[in-house]
C-alpha cells in the first residue's frame, strides 16, 4: 500500500496552492513539508497559498509552518486558508458584527462605547469620544475623537457625514488631525477613514468604501 500524500501541491494562476492534510500529526506534516519544500525545483519567487483544512493552528504552529516554507528562497506565503477558528475568536467576531445605535449628541467629556459596530445619529463634539470594537458610522459631524477596531480589528473604518475629528484611531494606530496632515480635505463631507496595508490611516470619499472594505457589506449579490 502506498503512503498517501500529506501535502498536495497545485499550480494556479495566483501561484501555488499547498493543501495540508488535516488528519495526520503535526510533526509528520512538518517533516513532509520540509521534504517537499527542499525537493521542489523552482526558479524565481512563487507565491504560496496554504490550505489548512480542518486543522486548527495557533500562532506558534503557524510560525513553524511558515519558517519551514521560507527555508526555500523560492517560496513566499501570501495567504492562509483555514476552515476552523477558535471559539474565542468566533465570539469576538460575532460581537464585532453586532451593531449598536446612539441617538443624540455626544458632548465634550462624554464617552460612548460599543463592543461591535457603533452608529451615532448626531454630532460627536470636540473632546467627546466614540469607541467601537467594530466600525463607527456617524450621521452627523465628528469633531472629537473616534476609535474604531478598539479590540485590534484592522479592517474597521470610521465613516461620517462630516469627518473633522481631532483624533482618529483604528486598531492600535492613532492619527492626530493637525493642519500639516496632507490627507485632510477642505470640505470633509461624506468621508471615511481606514487603515492602509502600510499601517497608516488614510481618508477617502465615502463612495470608495465599497471597494476599500467590500466585506463590510452584508448584502451579497445583485438585485
Amino acid at each position: 500500500m502506498t503512503k498517501s500524500q500529506l501535502i498536495t501541491i497545485k499550480g494556479t494562476k495566483d501561484g501555488l496552492v499547498l493543501r495540508l492534510d488535516d488528519h495526520c500529526s503535526f510533526t509528520e506534516l512538518l517533516s513532509e513539508l520540509k521534504e517537499k519544500v527542499q525537493s521542489s525545483v523552482l526558479e524565481g519567487v512563487s507565491e504560496v497559498q496554504l490550505h489548512l483544512g480542518h486543522r486548527y493552528c495557533d500562532e506558534k504552529d503557524m510560525n513553524k509552518i511558515q519558517s519551514v516554507i521560507h527555508t526555500s528562497p523560492h517560496l513566499r506565503v501570501s495567504k492562509v486558508h483555514s476552515d476552523v477558528i477558535s471559539l474565542k475568536e468566533c465570539e469576538r467576531k460575532l460581537i464585532e458584527k453586532q451593531s449598536e445605535t446612539y441617538i443624540g449628541i455626544v458632548r465634550s467629556g462624554q464617552v460612548v462605547k460599543a463592543d461591535g459596530d457603533l452608529v451615532v445619529i448626531g454630532d460627536v463634539n470636540q473632546s467627546a469620544q466614540v469607541i467601537a470594537g467594530g466600525s463607527i458610522y456617524v450621521l452627523g459631524r465628528v469633531k472629537g475623537i473616534a476609535h474604531a477596531g478598539a479590540q485590534g480589528n484592522k479592517d474597521a473604518v470610521i465613516a461620517a457625514s462630516w469627518l473633522e475629528a481631532t483624533h482618529l484611531k483604528i486598531a492600535d494606530k492613532i492619527e492626530i488631525m493637525t493642519d500639516e496632515l496632507t490627507i485632510l480635505s477642505e470640505q470633509p463631507e461624506m468621508e471615511c477613514a481606514y487603515l492602509q496595508k502600510n499601517g497608516q490611516i488614510a481618508i477617502d470619499r465615502l463612495q470608495e468604501l465599497r471597494y476599500l472594505r467590500p466585506d463590510l457589506a452584508t448584502f451579497k449579490g445583485g438585485i
Binding site: G104, R107, S108, G109, Q110, N125, Q126, S127
Partner: peptide
C-alpha cells in the same frame, strides 16, 4: 462654548 458643551452633557 466647549465648557458649555461639557456642562450640557452633565445636565442632560
Amino acid at each position: 462654548v466647549r465648557d458649555a458643551d461639557r456642562i450640557i452633557g452633565l445636565l442632560e
